[in-house]
Design a protein around this nucleic acid. Sequence first.
DNA 1: ATCAATAATAATAATTATTACTATTTATAG
DNA 2: CTATAAATAGTAATAATTATTATTATTGAT
Lengths: 126, 126
Amino acid sequence: MRYSKQRELILQTVKYSKSHPTADDVYHLLKAQNPDLSLGTVYRNLNHLASQGEIYRIEVMGDSDHYDGNMEMHFHMSCKACKRVMDIPHDVAPDLKEKAELKTGYQIDSYDIAFSGICDKCQKLN
Amino acid sequence: MRYSKQRELILQTVKYSKSHPTADDVYHLLKAQNPDLSLGTVYRNLNHLASQGEIYRIEVMGDSDHYDGNMEMHFHMSCKACKRVMDIPHDVAPDLKEKAELKTGYQIDSYDIAFSGICDKCQKLN
DNA sequence: ATCAATAATAATAATTATTACTATTTATAG
DNA sequence: CTATAAATAGTAATAATTATTATTATTGAT
């Protein structure tokens, strides 16, 4: 994989953001300072970076994909109220791979937990 | 919600299928015997039935949504080889709601685990 | 049973997210 | 420095799903 200024910008944007941005978010965040950035480039590089394990792809029910630069094992919750994506620590569900393999005989390569609920801030606004 | 023959057919197809069909699968399964069934009707009713808690929507990474008529709490694995969706029993991860709420302070309304791996049949074909 | 009200439908158009294509630009090995 | 191939911008295309609209069918009241 050859260096490109665009990929570097995209990677940094995802790494330094705490908001789990979508492809479109990344595009708009960068477009102001980089007027000839192309949306296709953002998609291509997010895919590339995700498949290289440099960033994490978060699938949100009925929403576009989000991305996370934090590669420590953890999960996510989509807040029904503000629609933001929040982090959930990994230790709510350790050993899931081993347990599922034992129960089923399938070979588990990966898994992801998609939580849905109401975040702390939105609970207070009630 | 008023009765319709189409909704009944769609519900029965999902309930009696063990293959976790997609909207398009349901459409094609029924289309032969019901030539003027519309794909939009299938989508509308699958959404309706899922929101009423009569069937379960399964989101598969990079694939269209699948549906499951088995409403007992359980999870799914998408087989990387044959692309089929397999069941994973609920007891691989009990108490996940409570654990996540304690750890985070968020209100968890639901969660789903998406496993990815190789099913028993595909393992043998190696 | 008949009939109006309105929910559901079929057919089609539109939308949204994402990927593919193509000509041009740019990183980098030699 | 230059040739090569990977990456890009800009645009077109695709796939999944949702919206629109005119028609049909269910149901509750007469």
